[in-house]
Nucleic acid binder design. Structure first.
Lengths: 207, 207
DNA sequence: AAATTTAGTGAACAGTGTTTATTATCTAAC
DNA sequence: GTTAGATAATAAACACTGTTCACTAAATTT
């Protein structure tokens, strides 16, 4: 069935073309300023065509979110070979922040926007979130290794990982959502990195 | 000029009536499902009337945000009389989380939404954010007192305060934005409180 | 009593996400 | 090779959104 194969291939190609165009627009102009019609214009199709490939806008966003998580996972692999767990956590945090700064729109999609999560919970059961799941598992693994090797004191690895995740997410989210206007412009980025350094100092001293 | 006084009073009263109606709707139905027309319906005025009292929707949101910060400040006063700085920080964190859980819409308005910050930066200079400013100052004050009394090791109080703020904000934001679906439903709230407890354990041991 | 300021509105504009009836095209069976 | 049927794409519409503006009616001042 060569014809059916080609049809399927073309279908997934067009689907990916829509995703690519959408991501481009979102990154360039931000999520608030890009509509389904804009995306349709960019790929030179009718708006209704997009709905042949995606149930709705949220599903499109979820697909982009999953792609973004893959990209982040790839970038976070840079910390995979650091032996000391505390040092590895520190590197992870800085890599995470760096990702958030270099790709603010992707960060928003992955950790702030509601749309993709609505789609995730609609399509799968209440517990399935492929992208975020593996990202969090990465943190849990680092913490667990720290506990297993006796570097960290015994603890619930998942709540410790949550503490780490909340710390880095909190810093990035407060900054990207303009909540650091409480401090003078020139102090914002330095204070973030100092806060992160202090946090990992606490981890190294007392975890 | 008794008439002018009455007019001014009526004007601010109607303005507050709009804010009250809007807040009610937002809390009940969420920000995404409430439009300017819905608010106008609730107060039995035309949509255009709202624009006689607010420049645009963002300005209305900013006013509600400022009110919300006042409410939170009031609730956070419960921790004002705790002597030990580390214990005070812990109580602050739990009070903060409690507020976020009891008033998820207000939390969203204060710490996540873009709209109010757009209005804030439009009406004032790039550094004015009355609501958030005093909230953050409260954390800085606790930390500073800890440093001054020799309980905490000397540090930049603002970056330490940022670390604390990011921790509690991160936990609340991840939860409220459905990012804790990575763990089983029954673990989510417990893991949050464990993470917070671990964080303040680190603070007590090593700050 | 007339002129003027003020408060409020209906209707419109340009945009949004989404659905549906309709058309054109490409595939499969006779 | 022609006809019946699946597939792909669309134009047009629906019910919304935030916002503006010409216009009316009432209250105040002269």
């Amino acid at each position: 069935m060569a014809i059916a194969d080609r049809k399927l291939r073309e279908k997934t190609e067009r689907r990916q073309a829509i995703l690519d165009a959408a991501l481009h627009l979102f990154i360039e102009q931000g999520f608030e300023k890009v509509s389904m019609r804009n995306i349709a214009d960019a790929i030179e199709y009718s708006p209704a065509t997009i709905y042949l490939y995606f149930k709705d806008k949220n599903e499109l966003l979820l697909d982009l979110q999953t792609q973004s998580f893959k990209q982040m996972a790839q970038e976070l692999n840079a910390v995979a070979n650091i032996e000391h767990p505390a040092e590895q956590l520190r590197a992870f945090g800085e890599q995470f922040l760096s990702f958030a700064f270099r790709h603010p729109e992707l960060f928003e999609l992955m950790f702030i926007m509601n749309g993709p999560m609505v789609a995730a919970q609609a399509c799968a059961g209440a517990t399935a979130w492929p992208g975020g799941g593996s990202a969090f598992a990465q943190v849990v693994a680092i913490v667990q290794r720290g506990i297993d090797t006796g570097v960290f004191r015994p603890q619930n690895a998942d709540s410790t990982a949550l503490m780490v995740w909340a710390q880095v997410h909190g810093l990035a989210a407060l900054f990207l959502r303009q909540r650091l206007v409480v401090m003078p412009e020139e102090r914002r980025e330095p204070a973030m990195h100092e806060a992160l350094a202090q946090f990992y100092d606490l981890v190294r001293r007392a975890l």
